[in-house]
Design a protein around this nucleic acid. Structure first.
Lengths: 225, 225
DNA sequence: CATTCAAAAATTGTCTACAATATTTTCGTA
DNA sequence: TACGAAAATATTGTAGACAATTTTTGAATG
């Protein structure tokens, strides 16, 4: 992490999120206040604010008197997150559907285009930002502060989960599928948009290695046989 | 609010939540740091931590350089909250179902009994705490930190919404319905438990006056005619 | 060599003073 | 009386110092 003079708390939060999503910070790592204050050249008070925000987003757990640690999501929690995320995304699509404007659609299509450019350039940081950013943009367009806040947390948590449980080096979640969702919204077909979103999230979830512990046992038995 | 020497941040948060739920603090009211610091006899720094937590739970919105204000939820947001809450509650029930213990059930039944006692005593503060607390206990028993955190926020937001949009003086959400849900879980009938929970939340939502703005216009026209 | 205890060091928790920003009041002018 | 500008006041934002807690290190003992 490089020094950033005059950096905002939100910028600190984003940098930590990206470091986690890019697997440079792994679960269990301690984020020491003094160290981070030096890295970002801010006071400890501001680091504490950033850590509180990271805890809110599920990326970090703060243990009183001991410190802040990057979270280790469990398999069950991963499934919880995807389950709840599907209903939040569905609600967002429903909220967008009746009132989406040409400007909204233009923004969404522009965003997908940016995703494609980042893919072409193999720009990991941009890919991660834009992949989650597409879903955040949908939530923003829905006009619901509540859904936007929910989505922000869910995107953060999903980033952590994919960093831990995804076996591939792939960081995006598919501009093609995003484009299809935009097209369905543009066509006013909310059922289709919702179904495409569900399929998209199932696709993302299917890329994670969330095998049950007993499957691990099975593998171990096979390995020892 | 009375002075509390040695009060924790969580206690401050709870006091503000209760004040909002009991309609003693209305939407738009500013929570001034210095004033709250004096009321609770703590430093401003701790009040800022409590306000950040209240913002996280959706009860307060902090406007930079201007202050913290109790939120005014919109009708659409209220509907969003109930929609997402239904899926979170359903997921909690699913997570509890396969592994619920006798001790869990005992705790749940004890909680419902407490709710009934509070009702009999017409103890408003206890009623509010225990009503939301039942759902939090379910989430705790599910063993999922994520679902517990989600539920905590949703309970807070629901309290604010009911304070604003419920026309009756009723503060609880029904020990009888809670007891039925516990019975269904105890019987291993998760479909039934989930359906009862859904019905319960629809019941809570139906007690809110969430008419559309145009209905207000209609009322105004009738009033002016 | 392993264990225990005390001291030192590291880290987090909290407070208060100062800086920055916003709001209210006062004063001058038309 | 109304309006605008400046001053005063109120409130929030931030930093560094001190307090409290936890962890690590070093010494003593068996």
């Amino acid at each position: 992490m490089t020094e950033q003079a005059g950096i905002s708390i939100q910028q600190i939060v984003e940098k930590v999120w990206l470091s986690i999503a890019e697997r440079r910070l792994r679960p269990g790592v301690q984020l020491k206040e003094g160290q981070m204050a030096a890295i970002f050249d801010v006071s400890r008070a501001r680091i504490r604010q950033a850590l509180a925000a990271l805890e809110r987003e599920g990326l970090v757990t703060i243990i009183p008197n001991r410190g802040a640690f990057v979270c280790q999501p469990t398999v069950d929690e991963a499934r919880d997150v995807f389950t709840i995320r599907r209903s939040v995304e569905s609600r967002v699509v429903a909220r967008i559907g009746a009132s989406v404007t040409k400007a909204d659609l233009s923004r969404l299509r522009g965003h997908v285009a940016q995703e494609r450019t980042a893919n072409t350039n193999d720009a990991t940081t941009d890919i991660i930002k834009l992949s989650g950013g597409f879903h955040l943009l949908l939530a923003e367009i829905s006009g619901s502060d509540f859904l936007f806040g929910m989505m922000r947390d869910l995107i953060s948590r999903t980033s952590l989960i994919t960093a831990v449980y995804r076996n591939t080096a792939r960081f995006n979640c598919g501009p093609d599928e995003h484009a299809e969702i935009v097209d369905a919204i543009a066509a006013g077909d909310l059922k289709k948009a919702s179904a495409l979103m569900e399929h998209h999230l199932e696709h993302v979830e299917s890329e994670l290695d969330l095998r049950e512990v007993r499957d691990m046992s099975h593998d171990l038995r096979a390995a020892l046989a």
